[in-house]
Design a protein around this nucleic acid. Structure first.
Length: 376
RNA sequence: GGGGAGAUAGCCAAGUGGCCAACGGCAACAGACUGUAAAUCUGUCCUCUUCGGAGUUCGAAGGUUCGAAUCCUUCUCUCCCCA
């Protein structure tokens, strides 16, 4: 994996770059749609590629391991072959499930024991097994096994957890480096910075992660309920320590505002379920603000979904029609909204990239930011 | 013409003397959602409210009772069966 920086903003820490992987290039800053179970929910691959212009999508180790299982994925020839997505894929390690499924798992030094949310069976995830699973899934970028700590989090817990995540990382790296890809192409391992909202822990973690000298680095444990100021402060602190010449991936972030602000702090990659999950729940993100399309006020609004027209659905469907689809619980509602939201997110990061290259990123950021959070 | 069943909030529906402004469900309205156990979840949903309460409801009218959606009388309407 290669990372080249093509432009740096003079008035912020933002940069525009390009990540190259075995399955193609990724222009940063980038947003990566989340496809937990091997599918970006409610979105066709064709739309993802041609309309949304996604450059890379996510998969999830825990979920894919449970279903369809490694045998099926391996027999298919890896996840790219299985789901028909030929561009880059990144898999999360299951570290987020250590957080989100916390009442169904037990952490030990060895790893995390999960009780499957599907059939209740017990499964052990260790740094080594998580590397093996991601080798089999065949993602271009794979993620170290970590514990995403909750918020709030006692400092002692955050510290102990961080240290364990670091030890797990050393095991991940040893195991990863001693193995190779199953399908003949290169895979890259990203380690994760933890440390909750404690500056000294974040600093220590970022320094440790930087010292591992991997081709890219992830920032985890944020956007779990902490105040946004804390999130930005931790992001900035960590970005300033992580190597300049390697991509920085802020995991699980976020709202359009979060993304723009974090790009200004030096983040290159983002992923979040928000544009897809919220789309299925009737929330549209637009460059003019946020729309709850189920609201009665759209009942007779026959104007296009979004005049900016980032994807064909914006001009194809009216607000009143999409509202009708949501109120009627039609499957198409979530599909249209997902295409719209992802199209908007991908437009947002590509616009940010262009502004960084043009040199007017901060000016643009100041203009668009107040609009993004507005309720329409 | 004879016999039977029933009328409860926008709809369906429970309740058959006090714990009932009235279970549920649907519809409606609003909110939440950040490395997806989520096309999910939460709240409001007779009127007014200083959120403590206050006021009017269970087809209509009258009655019994300390007290009625619930018991009695009459009326109105709906559905079913037999002629």
């Amino acid at each position: 994996m290669q990372f080249t920086i093509s432009a740096k903003d003079k008035h912020s820490k933002a940069r525009a770059g390009e990540v190259s992987t075995a399955h193609g290039q990724i222009q940063t800053p980038i947003f990566m749609p989340v496809g937990t179970a091997g599918t970006v929910k409610a979105v066709h691959q064709h739309e993802l590629k041609e309309d949304i212009k996604a450059q890379i999508i996510l998969g999830n180790t825990y979920h894919l391991y449970l279903r369809p299982g490694l045998e099926v994925i391996e027999q298919a020839g890896g996840l790219h072959k299985f789901n028909g997505w030929e561009k880059p894929i990144l898999t999360d390690s299951g570290g987020y499930q250590v957080f989100s499924l916390s009442d169904r798992r037990k952490i030990t030094e060895e790893g995390a024991m999960f009780q499957s949310h599907i059939d209740g069976s017990k499964l052990m995830f260790s740094p080594e097994s998580v590397m093996d699973i991601q080798r089999t899934i065949g993602a271009d970028i794979i993620i170290a096994f970590d514990e995403c700590t909750p918020y709030p989090c006692e400092k002692d817990y955050a510290s102990n957890s961080m240290e364990r995540t670091h030890r797990w990382l050393e095991r991940c790296i040893a195991h990863f480096d001693a193995s190779q890809g199953k399908y003949g192409y290169e895979q890259t391992l990203f380690p994760i910075v933890q440390g909750s909202v404690y500056p000294d822990l974040r600093k220590k973690s970022a320094e440790f992660i930087a010292s591992q000298n991997r081709p890219g680095n992830a920032i985890g444990g944020l956007s779990v309920g902490e105040p946004v100021e804390d999130m930005y402060a931790m992001t900035e602190l960590v970005c300033d320590i992580l190597p300049q010449d390697k991509p920085r991936y802020l995991m699980g972030v976020g709202t359009p505002q979060n993304i723009i602000e974090s790009i200004a702090l030096g983040v290159d990659m983002f992923d979040c379920v928000m544009p897809t999950r919220n789309a299925r729940n009737g929330m549209l993100f637009t460059s003019e603000g946020i729309i709850n399309i189920r609201n009665e006020k759209w009942k007779r609004d026959f104007s296009p979904l979004d005049s900016m027209n980032h994807t064909y659905v914006d001009s194809q469907y009216s607000k009143a029609y999409l509202r009708h689809l949501f109120i009627s619980k039609e499957y198409l509602s979530g599909m249209i909204a997902s295409v719209h939201n992802l199209g908007f997110y991908l437009w947002l990061v590509s616009e940010a990239r262009q502004r960084i290259i043009n040199g007017d990123f901060v000016q643009w950021k100041d203009e668009i930011l107040p609009k993004l959070g507005r309720r329409l």
